[in-house]
Design a protein around this nucleic acid. Structure first.
Lengths: 135, 135
DNA sequence: CTGTATCCAGTCAGATACTG
DNA sequence: CAGTATCTGACTGGATACAG
């Protein structure tokens, strides 16, 4: 993690850390799947069709380091590793889902705002993945 | 944002969009300052000591595009531009603060988990104070 | 199966210079 | 004052190869 160039309070950096983790490309997806039940590495990888091994590993490691998931290794042949949300991880899911619900409820308002902005600025270019709800 | 390799619902992409915006390095800081009152460009820049002009501009533009802030230009000499949160922006502040409160409340638990993880993995570059009492 | 190591292309953020 | 343009180093994420 990069050091901040400016003075930050510990509350501020705590907030920023959580926000950055949650805003991460794969974190929420991983945590959401794990919110239902514990899963194995490749099971997770197949579920999140599109994540690379590297990214899944590093996402899982970060989550483990911050105490959001546990990693349980069964030294069998072939090896088996289970990932599961901790209490802290399940706890985190609450405010994250709050934000998620907000996003779903306000999706329309945001895409309308974007359509308005783009029209006003003559930019007809559409960002993939989020412009389909515009109307 | 890149096109998704996997099937996504529009709800999923809406959530991801909001999460990515909020997880952005400067967004929350800017929105927080604007949560108190409207501010001018350089005022904001001085307040967030460390942000570059470029990043402030692009953060503000994204926020404006998504309908979270308004940009008001007074064609005076010297020019003056006020930024202010919209209703949508103030609305967004609610779940974001929920997550922020969570981060502050659970800061200790997260840093304890990190200390534990780093200790277990031989990375001794952690802050002294509350060492692991477990085991 | 579950990773680690390496390489590489694309993107991001900061510094700097310039404009209205 | 409030930006825009450009260059560049740093970081990110993906693909591939390899190891326990």
């Amino acid at each position: 993690m990069k050091p901040d160039h400016f003075e930050v309070t510990s509350a501020c950096s705590a907030v920023h850390h959580i926000l950055a983790r949650v805003g991460d490309k794969w974190t929420v997806l991983v945590v959401s799947y794990l919110g239902n039940r514990s899963m194995r590495f490749n099971e997770l990888k197949r579920a999140i069709n599109g994540i690379s091994q590297k990214m899944l590993t590093s996402t899982l490691r970060s989550l483990e380091r911050d105490g959001f998931v546990t990693r349980t290794v069964y030294p069998t042949i072939p090896p088996r590793v289970d990932y599961e949300l901790t209490d802290l991880g399940r706890d985190l899911l609450v405010p994250v889902r709050g934000l998620g619900d907000w996003a779903i409820k306000n999706e329309q308002r945001v895409s309308e705002a974007r359509a308005r902005f783009d029209a006003a600025h003559g930019n007809a270019e559409v960002q993939p993945g989020f412009a389909d709800a515009a109307e």
